[in-house]
Design a protein around this nucleic acid. Structure first.
Length: 217
DNA sequence: CAGTACCC
DNA sequence: GGAC
């Protein structure tokens, strides 16, 4: 950490918003690093292109996905799982850029999860009409590690509930640079994203990116 | 039969 | 609600 990091003025950032027990929205947490994150994302996606995965039930996901880090999430007819190789090309997933790791570590620590270090980043691109039905992130080996979720580009209508599918889902808008962290009692909370509204963002054009950081292995 | 990172 |  540099001196500039230590003395960066954080006073213009809104206070964290509690979404549940152990779940926090950190508004605009990544705003000052958004361009560096997007530049690094560009490099990752050149090595591991976005693709529309199949669900085990036989549907094509509307969200386009890729991964970086030691492990990557994958879905096909055989189920959900993490792999150390990209099934698309048979090579390792691209390494996780340092700016990704630093952002995830800092956000997790801010939300009460010191010591979190991701080994996997799932990249989701939401184009027009893309959505993600409510689901749990439960394919990771050790659920004591939180999920760190970064939003870039167009805003999303995010839904966040509890560990049972029937639990009420709250709705909150996620904007460019927002980070959501959930763990502890909220680790298995159902969450989803409503269909993306149209529009244009200066940094990403007509889409939204979500980067979710996990420790999968 | 129950459940769904589904669909209409 | 239905199809998988």
């Amino acid at each position: 950490m540099t001196t500039a990091d230590l003395f960066r003025d954080l006073s213009d950032r809104p206070a964290p918003v509690r979404l549940g027990d152990g779940a926090w929205l950190l508004p605009r947490f990544a705003c000052d690093r958004a361009e560096a994150l997007l530049a690094a994302l560009d490099g990752v996606l050149r090595q591991a292109p976005l693709r529309h995965m199949q669900t085990p039930g036989g549907h094509t996901m509307t969200v386009a996905m890729s991964c970086c880090g030691e492990r990557g999430w994958h879905s096909d007819a055989a189920g959900y799982r993490y792999t150390t190789f990209d099934p698309h090309c048979g090579r390792r997933w691209p390494p996780m850029p340092a700016v990704f790791v630093e952002l995830a570590v800092a956000a997790a620590a801010t939300a009460g999860y010191p010591g979190f270090v991701p080994d996997s980043c799932l990249i989701n691109r939401y184009g027009a009409d893309a959505k993600l039905s409510p689901h749990q992130d439960r394919d990771e080996r050790d659920l004591s590690h939180p999920i760190v979720s970064l939003s870039l580009g167009l805003p999303a209508r995010f839904r966040f509930g509890g560990p049972r599918r029937r639990d009420r889902l709250l709705r909150t808008d996620l904007e460019h640079g927002d980070v959501v962290v959930w763990g502890g009692a909220s680790r298995l909370a159902y969450h989803g994203v409503l269909p993306l509204a149209g529009g244009r963002h200066p940094s990403t054009g007509d889409c939204r990116y979500n980067l979710s950081f996990r420790r999968a292995g």
